[in-house]
Amino acid sequence: MNRKNEPNAGSVVGGVDTHKDLYVAAVVDHKDRVLGTRSFPSTRQGYRQMLAWMRSLGELQRVGVESTGSYGAGLLRFMQQAGVTVLEVTAPDKQDRRKRGMNDDLDAQNAAHAAFAGKRTVTPRSRDGMIEALRVLVACRKTAITARRVALQMIHNTIVAAPDGLRDQLRVMTRMQLVRTLAASRPDLTAYRDVEAAYRISLKSLGRRYLELHDEIADLDAMIAAIVKELAPNLIARNSISYVGGAQLLLTAGGNPERMRSEASFAALCGVSPVPASSGKTLRHRLNRGGDRAANSALHIIAIGRLRTDQRTKDFVARRIAEGHSKLDAIRALKRYLAREVFTLIRQRQLEINASRIAA
């Protein structure tokens, strides 16, 4: 741990094990000795009581919190507004857990020990502002797309097993023609005991469900596009970067991209950084299979789009192939360059936003 961040005499470090309705907090002193462990409700009043208790034991230097993206999101916002440095504590050490066992008190103490030592900790993404609004909308859109796909699959599966007359009538239609026809149909709802009537009622319900989800996704797309356009117009102005892809890359960077020290950190976060895999006289790198796979997918879509439309990208891939690399290896290298480009654009826009806030 960096000595300038090492707790001084009289200072304390906190740790919190988060749950849906209850938080367990622990505090260690400047020598990493446990001073106490207490439980608090996961409410604003509980947040205030927890912070007051931690500060009563000494000068609170920082707090390690588990699950800042879910159960600990509210606590993260409260602590940041109170001016407390918060570190996200990652999964506990398995070997240590096997030795000491597991309960909420031990988990909270382990979080405090990790925050004290600066191990298994990262700077959490901020959970306020437009990036958080974008995250919620994107998550909602994702589930709506999944539900729409399931509705369409159910429509086709139902038609396959439908009575011949109904099946022959519907199977020749295009997707949207089929969906709109089903949604506008008027089956006899009182004849649901009849097989064909039951099929017609079911298909009408599925058709209406599909159209409702289709309209919901369109509304969400408009909101997402408006936020992305405001947050990063320089990003979506680039070739092959869509609003959905740009939104995902903004979410991966977070509302505080300054927490990443370099573009290499962003590349690793997106899973496009090369990982050394050398042994003996063999020098090689392998594909990074970690990181945010949604961001990796967004970069892959951008790479494929540019490979079709951008001459410089075509020349780059052709040159890599001529050097003996496979096309997949060339695309992986291209994604690494794209991560650098995206990160530079996001950081540039973040600096502009911060400068405008200071000026205001």
Results as ranks from 00 to 15, higher is better:
G14C: 13
G15H: 09
T18C: 09
K20I: 00
D21Q: 12
L22R: 14
A25W: 01
A26K: 07
A26H: 04
H30P: 01
H30C: 04
R33T: 15
V34Y: 10
T37E: 03
G46E: 06
L51C: 03
R55Q: 08
L57Y: 04
V63H: 01
V65A: 08
S67H: 12
G74D: 03
L76Y: 03
Q81E: 08
A82I: 00
V84C: 03
V86D: 02
P92A: 10
L106I: 07
A111F: 06
A115S: 08
G118K: 11
G118R: 12
T123K: 15
E132Q: 15
E132A: 13
R135N: 01
R135I: 02
T143R: 14
Q153D: 07
I155F: 00
I159A: 03
R167D: 00
R167L: 02
Q169T: 09
A184V: 02
D188H: 09
S205I: 05
G207T: 01
I217V: 14
A218H: 09
D219R: 13
I224G: 09
A225C: 10
I236M: 03
N239R: 12
S242I: 14
V244A: 15
T252K: 05
R259V: 07
S265E: 08
C270H: 05
V275H: 11
G291Q: 02
N296P: 00
N296R: 15
A298V: 13
H300R: 13
T309R: 13
D310K: 11
Q311P: 12
T313K: 14
K314S: 08
R319Q: 05
R320G: 05
I321Q: 14
A322I: 06
G324K: 12
S326C: 03
A339S: 10
R340L: 07
T344W: 06
I353D: 03
